[in-house]
Design a protein around this nucleic acid. Structure first.
Lengths: 341, 341
DNA sequence: GTGAAAGCGCTAACAC
DNA sequence: GTGTTAGCGCTTTCAC
């Protein structure tokens, strides 16, 4: 590979010192119009790009934001990532994406890797940060990292010194309950999928139970079935278990993937949606509109969500304080799966 | 943020020179067992990680691979990316992911950005590399880049000096035709979606027409409808147009997303799958199993695909030649959408 | 085996 | 305004 051209080459050919070239590069100081133009022409001519490694060594800034996601193949994370990326680009940052696949060992290694790459900040989406049972070793690891660089998370990690950006779980469940309340026939409500160990899931369930009693609706423990897998299989298994104990009027699925599994189980039992059983889920990914009937789903403004995460990171990078927790407001998109009969 | 600890700190506390510390870091030279152990203990103690910027400045290697994808929200790219990432991690590389959203201007900017970040190689997935009509300015840009660092692409870009890893389009279509041939009733075949400008799509269509005539099947131009949008809308529009001209026995959709749109159009016309019309698509993403009936789809071994892309990149980084083109063999997964009646 | 020293490409005082 | 100079943190000859 051809040797890259450096600031020295440009300076030599322009007949100026390297500092002058550096000045037009950074724009941090005045340079005579004439020289500036000459230098810019040479930069064009040679397609010269300053070596960000060298610059980073001095400014100790890489303009890289590391992002650790559970699994980018999940459209929820994919949507969130692309939103983050767009926001980051606006701020002049690039994204270093790592997937942990919720593997603890892998997550540790990747965190190390990001630290070594000297990213300016880290955003943690899902994985161990989502866990309710605090993994002290993990928390310690994140704490160490956040002592060096800003760490922004969704989820919660006690005492790890991270800024949090979360979805308003209470509001998310409130939207679901309000929507369900529009149909007086919806009395028996089931909840399918999700793990008790995941903070957001646990919060949703807690709010759900409270809201049930507030609305004078009964809570059926046997219709409240968790499942560690946030996918079709999890939904399928959960729904089958629910159906062993009774036939609810509505099923709340922990996410769209899970809802797809729920649909499959219902289909196999000869139950139609929404005529026999209605279905609501969370995340409002494109799965919601891919299936038939389309899913009523609680979604988020991913652009806003991503922007909040990146803004937090960038502000912290620049030494500007940021609220310890930001709440993202969800919204419910009503579709066929809960349509009035 | 706390000042990072450096090789100097370690050397001072260990009572050795920085070169000795560097030696245990790189493992490139012999160091006495005693000193080595002492140094390693200090590294542990302070959680010291060598600054990759400084190292990179000398070795001119960042251990970063830039990857430019059209849109990671598309499960095809997401699957391919995660496969690449896992492979890259095995080689000790991290991934810098950028999404172009098929925006030409954005793509240029991101290419620049990757070059500035001094990534060791670039992998191009989709976007302008997919285009059949060579964008000479873009090709020139990629050529310039590939003169400095290895560039690996899927798709084709004439004379840009890139190594290619592609799916075997001929084999992909052959699998579809063989599968269709198992059902003598499948005579009238439609093709829905995809743009003539995308190389892989154009190749599929060309092979399709040839294979139709080879098998003595008729080609119905009015049942061959393209659409620039590789999503539900594209499939929906294409299928509606096809149905204006006749009722095919089988529809080949350009990808799973498109197939979902096709399903919707069929449903609205009161046509059942597979009883009235069968459906095959490409990519075999999880959409294929999310919908009902599940889709027969031609998929790829994403791990192998990603590994081929990254291996090419890593080999080229290390100055080892790599075949100009590698073909990935597809496979057909038969599901309900083409099930025998 | 080990240390001293040069230098990767750049920025940022510091003089002029 | 502009050049000179001192590093940023590390690897790598080159002596010893």
């Amino acid at each position: 590979m051809a040797k890259s051209i450096t600031i020295v080459d440009i300076a030599r050919e322009a007949g100026v010192s390297i500092s002058t070239v550096s000045r037009v590069l950074t724009g941090n100081a005045k340079v005579s119009e004439k020289k500036k133009r000459a230098i810019q022409e040479l930069i064009q001519k040679y397609d010269f790009r300053p070596n960000l490694l060298a610059r980073g060594l001095i400014t100790s800034a890489t303009h890289l934001i590391g992002i650790l996601a559970a699994d980018i193949r999940n459209p929820y994370y994919a949507s969130l990532f692309t939103a983050c990326e767009q926001s980051a680009n606006d701020f002049g940052y690039n994204m270093l994406l790592c997937n942990s696949f919720s593997d603890r060992v892998q997550e540790f290694a990747l965190l190390d890797s990001l630290a070594r790459q000297r990213v300016d900040a880290v955003i943690l989406l899902g994985g161990a940060v989502d866990s309710l049972t605090t993994d002290t070793e993990y928390a310690e690891k994140v704490r160490q990292l956040s002592a060096r660089i800003p760490v922004v998370i969704t989820g919660a990690l006690a005492d790890a010194g991270c800024v949090q950006v979360n979805i308003d779980a209470e509001q998310a469940m409130a939207l679901v309950m309000q929507h369900i309340a529009q149909q007086p026939a919806f009395q028996k409500i089931a909840f399918a999928g999700g793990s008790h160990d995941v903070i957001f899931t646990a919060a949703l369930r807690a709010h759900w139970k409270r809201m049930l009693s507030e609305r004078g609706l009964r809570y059926y423990p046997e219709l409240d079935v968790t499942n560690p897998h946030y996918n079709e299989n999890g939904g399928y298994a959960a729904m089958n278990e629910i159906l062993q104990h009774g036939k609810p009027d509505v099923v709340i699925a922990i996410n769209d993937f899970t809802a797809v599994g729920v649909m499959q189980a219902l289909r196999e039992h000869g139950l139609r949606i929404p005529d026999d059983i209605a279905l609501v889920s969370f995340d409002d990914t494109y799965l919601a509109t891919a299936v038939q009937p389309q899913l009523t789903s609680v979604g988020y403004n991913y652009m806003q969500f991503g922007n909040a995460l990146v803004s937090a990171a960038v502000q912290l990078i620049n030494g500007i304080a940021f609220p310890a927790e930001t709440l993202i407001q969800p919204r419910l998109i009503a579709r066929g799966s809960t349509e009035k009969r």
